[in-house]
């Protein structure tokens, strides 16, 4: 009954290394995580921690060498090309970089129509759907025949979100979707993510390096460190009272935008580091 939407079980990802008989590079080791329908699970970690790799493994863009990725109970870790194409209606993606994730030579309408055309959605219905998408991501209704380069970073990210929503998926893997954006744009795009989730009950696997972004959007949060999940639990607890030493270091390292509070946090960080090394 209470089966999670996405259930990642003991997944290991290894990339073959260059050179004869070289040891493969292990990006993820034995990672388990689950996402329920309509839920946002934040995945936070520093560069090289494997958080992006986990997202790509769910999308079938990274080689899963061991373990299972169950989507509605079905293992999709080794889904073939045609099975993957079927999954496109269920699992979608929003990438970090809104500048390279949209083909610069295609209009916004062509970009959004692409997944629909593949599914043989009739033209009239597809243009209706695109209009609805523009409204959902709050883009001007006449954006259709413009090229991506005519939009700002925040607007491009809205286009990418609209593309992800086109097929009404149940899960969207969001790979650092607000990291390339300015502060105020970032806040607005995060609100959009939240609103869309409340309207459509789509689930997010939300990858970010920023503890505050993750705290703001996630119901539950997982912390990754060197290819492993070190802490996973309720978003509030993980992001405000972390238990694992690494999460604690991460928490105290992020500067607060308040000089007094930051001075205090700095002190606490130094104390914590002294304790942890002792």
């Amino acid at each position: 009954m209470n089966q999670p939407l996405l259930d990642i079980q003991n997944v290991t990802v290894e990339y073959p290394a260059k050179g004869f008989r070289a040891k493969p590079f292990r990006a993820l080791s034995n990672v388990s995580l689950d996402v329920r329908a309509g839920e946002c699970v934040g995945l936070v970690g520093e560069s090289g921690s494997g958080k992006t790799t986990l997202g790509r493994a769910v999308l079938g863009l990274a080689p899963v060498t061991e373990g299972k990725v169950l989507f509605r109970g079905q293992d999709i870790a080794h889904a073939g090309r045609s099975e993957r194409r079927e999954l496109a209606t269920d699992i979608q993606v929003v990438f970090q970089d809104p500048y390279t994730s949209l083909n610069p030579s295609r209009t916004v309408e062509q970009i959004l129509a692409e997944p629909l055309t593949v599914r043989k959605v009739p033209r009239s219905e597809s243009s209706k759907r695109i209009k609805a998408l523009f409204e959902m991501v709050r883009l001007p209704a006449d954006s259709g025949n413009r090229l991506p380069r005519e939009f700002s970073g925040g607007q491009r990210q809205r286009i990418a979100i609209a593309r992800a929503l086109a097929l009404k998926p149940e899960l969207i893997v969001c790979d650092e979707p607000v990291s390339a954006l300015d502060l105020s744009t970032q806040a607005r795009v995060l609100e959009l993510f939240k609103d869309i989730q409340e309207q459509t009950h789509v689930a997010y696997l939300f990858v970010s390096h920023d503890l505050e972004v993750v705290r703001h959007i996630s119901h539950r949060v997982a912390v990754m460190y060197r290819g492993d999940i070190v802490e996973f639990g309720d978003g509030d607890q993980v992001t405000s009272a972390p238990r694992h030493p690494y999460t604690q270091r991460l928490f105290f390292a992020a500067p607060v935008a308040d000089p007094e509070a930051q001075a205090q946090r700095r002190e606490e960080r130094h104390r914590l580091l002294a304790e942890q090394t002792a």
Partner: peptide
């Protein structure tokens, strides 16, 4: 003020997912 208002640190966390709209029955 707008910039300072956009800082997420001030906002409260989202909290756990309300359980009643989860699960396959909602699909």
């Amino acid at each position: 003020r707008e910039l300072l208002g956009a800082i997420l640190g001030e906002t409260s966390p989202r909290g756990p997912l309300a359980t009643f709209d989860a699960g396959p029955s909602a699909s």
